[in-house]
Simulated assay, not measured.
Amino acid sequence: MTEEEVLAEFRASEALLEGHFKLSSGRHSAHYLQCARVLMDPMRAGRLASAIAAKLPRELRSQIDKVVSPAIGGIIIGHEMGRALGTEAIFLERPTGTFEFRRGFDLTPGEKVLLVEDVVTTGLSSKEAMTAVENAGGVVLALASLVDRTDADVRFDVPFHPLIQITFPTYADDEVPAQLAAVPVTKPGSRK
């Protein structure tokens, strides 16, 4: 899938929003990608996951024992990645603020994991999820995502395979431009 084809999927599902948004990272942006909307169509979600899987190196695909995603944003794309790769897909939750496996989900020691996210912005959630996988005995081989919104400063200890990279400017609370500050702010993400 080309970048324009991926963006067409977001536009078709009205998942590319414009306004004034406070992101889960706490930063502000004039654009927001509502991955839940783009993934609400199972056929579209399957196409996007298959496109991510196709971008993964063949050697990596052959090593993956399980797909793990952080809740809530990563659950759908993680499930579809499991389907595309022909492996189980489970997810992490934060019932007390720290990622953990629940619902009978677990990893066997040494199990090789592909961590899958919907959007990666600061990388903090991904790094916390990787720590949870490692604490459960798993080995994170790589990180994959539908969208990479990171800046050049974000680094991971494993290869990162996003389907698309989109760079919309983001601002700290004290950096919001006047024209953006004049627009009422909304917080569409899952974390409050």
Rank of each mutant, 00 (worst) to 15 (best):
L39D: 00
V120M: 06
P95Y: 15
A129S: 13
G19L: 12
S24L: 07
E117Q: 09
M1G: 12
M81N: 04
E5P: 07
E128S: 05
L124R: 15
I77C: 02
S29C: 10
V120I: 15
E4F: 02
L180K: 07
R58F: 14
F156W: 03
A8S: 09
V116Q: 01
R83N: 08
A182E: 12
L60H: 04
T186G: 08
R191Q: 08
A182K: 12
V119D: 11
L48M: 01
I76F: 09
L33C: 13
H20R: 05
T150R: 13
D148V: 00
I75R: 11
A132Y: 07
I77T: 00
L7W: 05
K55V: 03
D118I: 00
M81K: 05
L141N: 04
R44P: 00
S24H: 09
Q165A: 15
A53F: 14
D157A: 13
K192C: 06
G26C: 13
G78E: 12
E4D: 13
Y171N: 02
F160D: 01
L124C: 10
E80K: 05
F10C: 02
K192N: 12
E18G: 02
K112Y: 08
K66R: 15
D173Q: 12
G104F: 10
D65R: 06
T108V: 06
R155T: 09
M81Q: 02
T131Y: 06
A51D: 13
L39T: 00
T170D: 13
A136M: 09
V38Q: 00
F91Y: 15
S13L: 05
A30M: 03
S190G: 10
P188T: 09
P169V: 01
K187T: 14
V176Q: 06
P169L: 05
T150W: 01
H161E: 11
K112R: 15
G86K: 11
A152Q: 09
L16G: 01
S126D: 04
V139G: 02
I75N: 13
P109R: 13
H20C: 09
S50H: 12
I164H: 02
Q63N: 07
A30Q: 11
G97R: 11
V116P: 02
A142Y: 04
M43A: 15
L146P: 03
I77G: 00
R27W: 14
A49I: 03
F156P: 05
L23S: 11
E14A: 09
F156R: 03
E93N: 07
E111H: 06
